[in-house]
């Protein structure tokens, strides 16, 4: 029963998001962004609703969604920590920093800590190459980081 209600809610919320974007040219990415913003991932029920309303096949919507690293099919942890792996950050010790964080948190890229608090994702450039190494905790940017500073970021979030 609870599952059914949840599924209906997802359909309803997704329909409302589609209403907002339907008039746009090429509305699929804006819709997927909003769906993920709403649920934290793109649920299968939302995918089916989008396909139905945009007159696309489920495979087409799935194909688009799965192409882009941003979209998830499972919920992330309560917080997402994106650590830059690109060259400018490497030149300032970014690779060691990433290794240290993975060791400290006890997880690898794309994994979530056992308490469900933090999901660790690699990111290839945040445009903060002049204050490397850089990371993003949820929507917030941080530069000139070291191991202690990153661990503090993790401590600060609930």
């Amino acid at each position: 029963m609870a599952l059914q209600t949840q599924s209906q809610d997802i359909e309803k919320e997704t329909a409302a998001i589609i209403d907002v974007h339907e008039h746009q040219e090429g509305p699929l990415l804006p819709i997927l962004h909003d769906v993920q913003g709403k649920f934290g991932y793109v649920p299968e029920d939302a995918l089916l609703k989008i396909a139905d309303r945009l007159n696309l096949s489920r495979a087409e919507v799935h194909g688009t969604m799965s192409f882009y690293p941003d979209f998830r099919t499972e919920p992330a942890g309560r917080h997402v920590l994106k650590v830059c792996r690109a060259e400018a950050c490497q030149s300032m010790g970014g690779e060691k920093l990433a290794d240290d964080i993975q060791r400290d948190l006890g997880i690898k890229w794309h994994e979530t800590t056992p308490d469900g608090k933090v999901t660790l994702e690699p990111v290839y450039c945040l445009g903060l190459c002049s204050c490397a190494p850089a990371a993003m905790m949820d929507g917030n940017l941080h530069g000139r980081l070291d191991e202690d500073a990153v661990l503090k970021l993790v401590e600060e979030v609930k």
């Binding site: 990415l29 997927l32 962004h33 690293p69 990111v123």
Partner: peptide
């Protein structure tokens, strides 16, 4: 004009 966001694909 409009702004559109990508989704992490280089």
């Amino acid at each position: 004009m409009e702004v559109r966001e990508g989704a992490g694909a280089y």
